[in-house]
Amino acid sequence: MECRVKRFGVLTSGGDAPGLNAAIRALCRTAKCKYGMEAVGIFNGYRGLINGDMRILSEPDISGLIAQGGTILGTSREKPFKNPTVNEATGLLPVEAIKENYKKWNLDALVCIGGNGTNTTASLLFQSGLNVIGLPKTIDNDIEGSDVTFGFYTALDVATDAVDRIHSTACSHSRIMVVEVMGHKVGWLGLYSGISGGADAVLIPEIPYDINSVVEKIKERRNSGKNFSVIVVAEGAKSKAEALLDKKAFKKARASMHTSIGFRVAKEIEEATGLECRVTVVGYLQRSGTPSSYDRLFSTYIGSAAADFLAEEKFGNLVAVQNGIITAVPLDSVAGKTKGIPLDHPMLKTARDMGICLGE
């Protein structure tokens, strides 16, 4: 069957993540070598699609990208369907401008690489009549429908290394050390780095914490002769009291905090124990730099598969992986959803069985 997709656009949107460039490279190379397609790079996410900021990508553009961090296409958090305003220069609403540029550049399809917000917008564009395919990128590993997202395991390596390194200082100074990792809504990164880094307590959004539980763990360790403890805290961790608040009240409560959650937890521990507590926020290091070998392979795997989706006209789908197999997951089943850690997840059982405190 003849491939009807001759030219497609590709964009990266939302937060950067290791593996973006590897995915772009695999997509463009497979599309060209296997199907003779032409790739158009769209710069700075959906903002570039609105403004027409794009150009054809040639072989030199994608050469050597597999080990490069960030994204050669740039990114933004533009949301064309949210609070749309008419552009004074063109007189068009964002979605109208997108359709105009899609037509102007003779695009047969779009490949949108990103996380929850990106794929939600991709779903809406598909519903608006464009041929769209999504790819799952986020260090949070929270995209519904895919077992894993690229960027997660590189971020996990960085977070685990941070927890490892903090151990030596905690032990040397007999301190309580709090390591804050990313994860606003889900705790995959916190749980996995906490277990792999040998943390004594892990606080994640899925399990509201009682600080007394953490304090008891610290006291238990001290009574057994261990004068230090390492606590991993996901940035979206919340107390049991906060878990009772509605969304608006919780947002207001967090806005009144003058520090991030890691510092609050440290203060709560100090007040309850009288022990010295220090905080390390790993921050953007988790999203930056060279992708791990796993993320290079995974990004290449799904990037190449995206070219097959284009050729097979599997529009309106996310290129997902389930049980190691490429799977087409409808974008409308992904849009607006977040994949949290199930409370019966085996890794939670592993943490509890090993005596790791989860703040329960």
Results as ranks from 00 to 15, higher is better:
110 L>Q: 11
166 I>L: 15
54 M>V: 06
180 E>G: 05
128 S>R: 05
119 N>W: 04
104 K>C: 02
122 A>Y: 09
178 V>R: 09
63 S>Q: 14
84 P>M: 03
114 G>A: 07
71 T>G: 11
78 E>G: 00
73 L>I: 09
160 T>K: 11
168 S>A: 13
90 T>E: 03
55 R>P: 00
130 L>S: 05
71 T>E: 11
57 L>R: 09
152 F>Y: 15
46 Y>K: 03
173 H>Q: 14
158 V>S: 07
150 F>M: 08
83 N>G: 00
110 L>R: 12
90 T>G: 05
119 N>K: 06
86 V>A: 06
86 V>I: 15
114 G>H: 10
69 G>T: 01
56 I>K: 14
147 D>S: 06
126 F>P: 00
156 L>G: 01
66 I>S: 14
164 D>I: 00
153 Y>W: 10
179 V>S: 08
161 D>F: 02
69 G>H: 07
99 K>I: 03
110 L>N: 11
126 F>N: 14
50 I>G: 04
87 N>I: 00
99 K>E: 13
113 I>E: 03
123 S>M: 12
50 I>R: 11
172 S>H: 08
131 N>V: 04
49 L>N: 04
108 D>P: 01
61 D>R: 02
52 G>F: 07
89 A>N: 12
148 V>L: 13
106 N>D: 15
106 N>L: 07
144 E>Y: 13
